[in-house]
Design a protein around this nucleic acid. Structure first.
Length: 435
DNA sequence: TCTGGGGTCCTAGGACCC
DNA sequence: TCTGGGGTCCTAGGACCC
């Protein structure tokens, strides 16, 4: 028996255009209307391009910067290291503005949010323009908005709004006729669908499903047999049958990871200990922000897959004696683990710490002596540490084991100032003359 | 010299139990 | 002379997302 939807839902997806590049352009007028690229940590790869940079060369994305540098310089492309403090702050402001338009928002990533629009009796194309213009006016970010009867359709609508200029940044699939929607879908490759990556695209194409319309019309049962339940759900969502809800509630993390590649290769144990100690401290800070405690820790170190030497990536996971979020305890455990997996003569490129089996404060277990190993004194110390670090982010209060030399720290040579989160970087008339 | 970091969900297969 | 079947839990690995 087929269930008939009593009332179709409506979702919107609001997404910032070239988020990182746009943030940089807002605060530095010299970057406006210029080709700008933002680089990953260590200035490794291109992870964002302004629309001007995209126009020059689409394939910059995800390619290593050292290969592109020269050519980019000739084309007048300006490169910047990523400034996550700035992007995170702008992202919060973006969500603030969106909350003016609907009470139900799901912050999906740093640059996109789903909005529940069911029951909002307005011309959504007009409403979308209003959202777009308000965000632009209040915080300066350019966005696109897509509407549809499922999250998957809202995502697709957003893609259309972004790529097809005649939509002027807003696409509402929910008010179109089935024929109009199908015509749009027929022109899009399946890889544009949320949840279809490279592997699935290849397999779908082999089965003759080479555009979105064909995926929409595919038999869900067959898709489930050939692929999995997730893609089956996607097919239903493409048909306007909503299976994914807005997730407003803050989901508790299941694991917290801190890892990063080094600015240079490292073969000394003491430097690896410093890096691992830093990551333990960083992960613990995020653990405490969510009032969680970890039961298990994983430490890994690895050389680069791009180096000539064979891949070596030892990884060690073990349970902690009792759930903790104490930086000193976890850093000690991490150092112990890295000593265990360290091998001399390997030039390591990356290290990381992952905390898992996370439990909320209430679920904290007592150890066999009947009291928490995280006694009140150490809790107070952690709290003080977090408060100091919040006030002085550039002068962190940290463990001695993190070291002071930081030879392993990543390169961010081209980073812009922290315009919105650091008083001394606040844009002023004086700073503007410098820009 | 230089090739991101942080996640989630699902599945298959092994171990173990009755 | 027999070698079933179903359930659960765990782990590793694949695929995907931004």
């Amino acid at each position: 028996m087929q269930s008939i939807p009593t009332k179709q839902k409506i979702f919107a997806l609001a997404d910032v255009n070239s988020m990182y590049a746009s943030c940089e352009q807002i605060f530095n007028p010299k970057l406006r209307d210029k080709p700008v690229v933002v680089l990953s940590n260590n200035d490794g790869c291109v992870i964002a391009q302004s629309k001007e940079a995209k126009a020059l060369l689409e394939i910059y994305m995800c390619r290593p910067w050292f290969e592109l540098k020269e050519e980019a310089a000739k084309l007048g492309v300006i490169a910047l290291s990523s400034n996550y403090e700035l992007y995170a702050d702008m992202s919060n402001r973006f969500v603030q503005v969106l909350s003016q338009f609907t009470p139900r928002i799901e912050v999906y990533s740093i640059d996109e949010s789903f909005l529940e629009m069911t029951g909002i009796n307005k011309d959504l194309t007009v409403y979308g323009q209003e959202i777009k213009n308000t965000v632009k006016q209040w915080i300066g970010l350019p966005i696109c908005v897509g509407f549809g009867h499922s999250k998957t359709l809202a995502k697709l609508a957003n893609h259309i709004a972004k790529k097809q200029v005649n939509f002027n940044g807003v696409c509402d699939l929910s008010s179109m006729t089935e024929n109009e929607v199908d015509t749009l879908m027929e022109k899009l490759s399946v890889s544009k669908v949320w949840g279809v990556g490279r592997k699935m695209e290849e397999k779908l194409n082999r089965l003759g499903i080479n555009n979105v319309l064909r995926l929409k019309r595919a038999d869900p049962k067959r898709i489930r047999d050939e692929f999995n339940v997730v893609l089956e759900r996607t097919v239903k969502e493409l048909n306007g049958d909503s299976h994914l809800e807005i997730e407003e509630t803050f989901l508790e993390a299941k694991q917290i990871m801190s890892s990063r590649s080094f600015g240079k290769r490292i073969d000394a144990l003491n430097e690896l200990e410093e890096a691992v100690s830093y990551h333990a401290s960083n992960a613990c800070e995020r653990l405490r922000q969510q009032n969680l405690f970890a039961n298990a820790i994983t430490v890994f170190i690895q050389n680069s897959p791009f180096d000539k030497a064979p891949y070596h990536g030892p990884i060690y996971t073990f349970g902690l004696p009792s759930p903790t979020n104490n930086t000193m305890q976890i850093a000690k455990a991490a150092i112990w683990a890295v000593r265990k997996i360290f091998k001399a003569g390997i030039y390591f490129q990356k290290a990381g710490v992952m905390l898992s089996e996370l439990v909320p404060q209430a679920g904290q277990q007592m150890d066999i002596f009947g009291y928490n190993s995280d006694n009140e004194k150490s809790q107070l110390l952690m709290k003080t540490m977090d408060e100091i670090n919040k006030k002085f982010p550039n002068n962190r209060f940290k463990l001695a084991s993190e070291g002071t030399k930081k030879t392993w720290v990543m390169n961010r040579d081209l980073k812009s100032p922290n315009y919105t989160t650091d008083w001394k970087d606040l844009p002023t008339t004086i700073n503007h003359s410098r820009l």
